[in-house]
Amino acid sequence: MESRRGEVNGMKFEIVAASEIGARVADLLAEQLRQKPESVLGMTTGSSPIKYGIFQEWIRREAEGELDFAHATFINPDEWVGIDSEHPESFQAFMNEHLFRHLRTKRKPSHIPNGAAENLLDECSRFEQLLRELQYVDWQLMGLGLNGHIAFIEPADSIPASTYVADIDEENQLTRSSHFRTPQEVPKQSITIGLEAVMKARSIVLVAAGENKADIVATAFRGPITTRVPASLLQLHPNVTVILDEGSAKRIGIV
């Protein structure tokens, strides 16, 4: 299919074939690293980076000398509460398995909240201070949950500005339950960044694909701005690119 581009509420949209999502995200990342090799790169977990070949494309391009992460810093915005980084279902383990261990040019330590910290409030403060020391994120990759969550910022009447402990929506617990031996093992909370870190990211690339995402894409980006749909707050961000496929773009109205 021929890719299409448009703008909705000040946000840039690109509609590409699902098979081209990985390549397009890699193009945007390559441009970021050309402009600023020492970029702070915000990561995401979930199904999208693997299903659409995003991390695989980064690994391939790095092996061929097209991407160089030697001066970049990686940071993840969230982690399960109650499991340590060595747990096979931790987000740290996910990143190691699917990206970090494959990179030859990665030199700097990566950063992720410690979900097994003895004092979670202290850990939130530590991670928030780290974000400030890094001067927040230069380029943030995001997915979009079916309930409109971004990172693990879940729908709520209000959303904290700084890193906090979030209760995970039951729907998202169910979507993650396949990663654990029993649904009861799925953590009920996460440590996640707050709205200040989202809004201070200098560039955000959000990926949403599949017909099951069409309704929430339209709700989040054509509907009202509300904390009940956290992704809708991205309408207030000055530099967001949303990558969709034909299925997820069905209701956004870009022709």
Rank of each mutant, 00 (worst) to 15 (best):
M1W: 02
R5S: 15
E7T: 15
E7H: 05
N9T: 10
F13Y: 05
F13Q: 06
S19Y: 01
S19H: 04
G22Q: 02
R24L: 13
D27A: 07
L29P: 02
A30C: 03
K36C: 07
S39F: 00
V40Q: 00
L41S: 04
L41G: 03
T45F: 04
G46P: 08
S48C: 08
Y52D: 09
Y52R: 06
F55C: 06
E57K: 11
E57G: 07
E64T: 14
G65I: 14
G65C: 10
L67W: 05
L67D: 11
L67R: 07
D68S: 11
F69V: 11
A70L: 01
A72V: 11
N76V: 13
P77K: 00
P77F: 08
D78S: 10
V81L: 09
G82I: 07
D84I: 09
S85Q: 14
S85C: 10
S85Y: 11
P88K: 00
P88A: 00
E89G: 14
S90I: 08
N96L: 10
E97D: 12
F100D: 06
F100I: 15
R101V: 15
H102P: 10
T105R: 00
T105H: 02
K106P: 01
P109A: 04
S110I: 12
S110R: 04
N114H: 13
N114T: 12
G115S: 11
N119F: 06
L120C: 08
D122K: 09
C124I: 04
S125I: 12
R126Q: 02
F127L: 05
L131E: 08
E133K: 15
Y136P: 09
W139Q: 02
L141P: 03
N147C: 08
N147K: 06
I150F: 02
F152T: 12
I153A: 00
E154M: 06
D157L: 11
T163D: 04
V165C: 05
D167A: 13
I168S: 05
D169C: 05
E171D: 11
N172F: 09
Q173K: 12
L174G: 05
T175R: 00
R176S: 13
S177A: 14
S178W: 08
H179K: 13
Q184D: 15
K188V: 15
Q189Y: 10
S190Y: 05
T192E: 09
I193R: 00
I193W: 04
L195N: 11
L195I: 15
R202Y: 02
I204A: 02
V207G: 06
A208V: 12
K213H: 09
D215P: 01
D215K: 06
D215H: 07
V217T: 10
A220S: 15
F221R: 03
R222V: 13
R228M: 08
P230M: 03
S232D: 07
L233D: 12
L233S: 13
L233E: 12
L236D: 04
P238C: 05
N239K: 09
V240L: 07
L244G: 03
E246R: 07
G247A: 06
G247M: 02
R251I: 09
I252A: 01
I254K: 00
